[in-house]
């Protein structure tokens, strides 16, 4: 073995992993499901959504998707403090989420709404930031519908485009609340250099990038799939 191994415990269970393994990956080996929105096993972790935070006994909570395991580390993934933190983050993300998530409405796999259910969040205490400044939709692509209001800036589409497909079309633009994803130098998607591979749509966890062809259907698995 070329890498040194480190020993740690996650939720009281011991595990040994190669040095450099993230806490999130180590937890998966123990079948511990740490919620996350920005990370996917197909991608380089970036730690932007902070939903995967865990308590390692440090001064603040750590994003497990980017934090490497350390020898002797004691990780808690679901303490009340951690859960409170996640609920707050979810409420913030949901505060300006559109009424109709095109992903939930079509393929039923909106990951943000799934987490809202998992955390029992039925209403949001925060003001809707989009009430007087909606972020808009872009239906210029023949295949992909863009709803900026449903975008949580998780960066999955950016990495899907730049790092999986290397088409380098998607980026971010704007500052503060006006930050959103953009195509090329902020062209409409259908007029950009987008090659319509659909990777962004496939990796998007929310209703921000969805399949136009499913615009009026709701898919439901047959035979409990």
């Amino acid at each position: 073995m070329s890498k040194d191994m480190v020993k740690l415990s996650i939720d009281g269970r011991d595990i040994e992993v190669p040095e450099g393994t993230t806490i999130w990956d180590a937890a998966r080996e123990l079948d511990i499901d740490i919620p996350v929105l920005c990370h996917s096993t197909r991608m380089r972790p970036v730690g932007v959504c902070r939903l995967c935070v865990v308590d390692v006994g440090a001064r603040n909570l750590q994003a497990s998707c980017v934090r490497p395991c350390e020898d002797g580390m004691k990780v808690e993934t679901d303490t009340p403090k951690v859960e409170r933190h996640r609920r707050m983050l979810l409420e913030m993300l949901l505060s300006d989420y559109p009424e109709d998530s095109a992903r939930e409405a079509s393929t039923g796999d909106d990951e943000l709404l799934e987490l809202a259910v998992r955390y029992g969040i039925e209403s949001v205490r925060l003001p809707d930031g989009a009430a007087d400044r909606p972020r808009g939709v872009d239906l210029s692509s023949p295949v992909i519908a863009v709803d900026h209001q449903a975008c949580i800036l998780c960066d999955r589409c950016v990495r899907g485009c730049d790092e999986l497909q290397h088409n380098d079309v998607i980026t971010r633009t704007g500052k503060g609340y006006d930050t959103r994803i953009a195509f090329d130098l902020d062209a409409p998607m259908g007029e950009s250099t987008c090659v319509a591979c659909g990777e962004c749509m496939a990796v998007c966890p929310t209703g921000a990038l969805t399949n136009q062809a499913l615009g009026n259907v709701k898919l439901k698995p047959l035979n409990g799939e």
């Binding site: 949901l94 505060s95 989420y97 559109p98 009424e99 109709d100 998530s101 939930e104 409405a105 079509s106 909106d110 709404l113 809202a116 969040i121 039925e122 209403s123 949001v124 925060l126 809707d128 009026n216 259907v217 709701k218 898919l219 439901k220 698995p221 047959l222």
Partner: peptide, 15 residues
């Protein structure tokens, strides 16, 4: 604000 539960009546459900 209520969290949307995303059942949209206009859509046809397809198994």
């Amino acid at each position: 604000k209520q969290v949307p539960n995303a059942m949209v009546e206009q859509r046809t459900t397809v198994g």
